[in-house]
């Protein structure tokens, strides 16, 4: 299978400004920064869905925005279809967007209130294809039908749509140009539960039909389990474990992953489960880090954890960054 997206050692720091930064310069210390993404690597094959999970603030959305170059990465490579997106700019980058799309978390905020559904879905076609107006309209109708929006909604404006319809419109916009990779940034977290499963099913159907690859970002392990073939777990700006979905849920190795999975509610009061509980809170992403990112919270901590654990392959396709495995 060919690799569509390969991200290597992606880093994105947000430098701090103000008194703290001046003080650091005064002391000759390295400039303080929020280390949102600190050396993340992963790859997505054609037709594959990679789930990227983690708590809020762990850097998942920053990864997504770097991949789409909505944010400029501090360093690292973002290889899309064999080309480094991190090195592109201007028009060259803009043209790649035909093949690389995104569905945002908030279906309301991500729709321009002054564009109708038709205009919105037509826009990427207008920008990236040489289709004649009539062909464009035909494609818009086709795409809307694919996502399950009726023709009668074509000329509606966002405020005249329901939440589920809005997210379908967002998906329609993302797939209009037949991209190869779609980044889904928590596409269902703003929807209520009854809609969630329908949107998930829709995404799955679209992936199969068009051989799409997804980078699926979520903090909801249940949806990730259903949708993703492989899962990468992020904590504090780095990937701590990556494995095929069934493997990860059956045999989570990293203490953080185990704690995450243990925290998922199970609708069976009799079920006996491993309970691994982390203590404390996520440390500040500003403080320079030494050793394992989970140090201080992990119940299994040893002396070895003072050194930064490398991401090692412990089973085929299963990589973990932990000294204890």
């Amino acid at each position: 299978m060919s690799i569509v997206l390969r991200v290597e050692r992606l880093v994105r720091h947000f430098p701090l400004r103000g008194p703290a930064a001046w003080a650091a310069r005064w002391r000759g210390a390295p400039p303080p920064a929020v280390r949102a993404v600190d050396g993340v690597s992963f790859a997505i094959a054609e037709g594959e869905t990679l789930g990227l999970v983690g708590e809020s603030g762990c850097g998942k959305s920053t990864v997504a925005r770097c991949v789409l170059r909505l944010l400029d990465p501090t360093s690292g490579r973002i290889e899309f279809e064999g080309e480094d997106l991190a090195a592109l700019r201007g028009d060259a980058l803009r043209r790649r967007r035909e093949r690389l799309q995104m569905v945002f978390q908030d279906p309301t905020a991500s729709l321009n209130p002054r564009l109708s559904v038709r205009d919105m879905v037509e826009e990427p076609l207008r920008l990236h294809t040489r289709l004649a107006p009539r062909e464009r309209q035909a494609r818009v109708a086709e795409v809307l039908e694919e996502v399950g929006l009726g023709r009668e909604l074509m000329d509606r404006y966002p405020h005249e749509l329901s939440g589920g319809q809005r997210q379908r419109a967002n998906i329609a916009r993302a797939i209009a140009t037949r991209p190869r990779l779609v980044v889904l940034d928590e596409p269902t977290s703003a929807l209520d539960v009854s809609l969630r499963s329908r949107v998930i099913l829709l995404l799955e159907r679209l992936r199969e039909r068009h051989a799409l690859s997804y980078l699926f970002i979520s903090h909801d392990l249940a949806t990730v389990k259903y949708l993703a073939q492989r899962v990468a777990v992020m904590y504090l700006g780095s990937v701590v474990e990556e494995a095929p979905t069934t493997e990860l849920f059956a045999r989570p190795l990293h203490p953080y992953t185990r704690a995450l999975i243990a925290a998922v509610p199970v609708p069976d009061p009799e079920a006996r489960r491993e309970r691994l509980v982390l203590s404390g809170e996520i440390p500040s992403p500003i403080a320079p880090r030494r050793g394992c990112p989970l140090r201080g919270r992990c119940p299994l901590e040893r002396e070895a954890c003072a050194a930064e654990p490398p991401l090692r392959e412990v089973a085929p396709g299963h990589r973990v960054a932990c000294h204890l495995v």
Binding site: Q101, F104, S110, L115
Partner: peptide, 24 residues
Amino acid sequence: EYAEAARTVGNPDRRIVLVHLLPN
């Protein structure tokens, strides 16, 4: 977020400002 969405879709800056932002 719709400003980001407009960029993701591949709008040039000029179009983002004139079509997506200024009318709002």
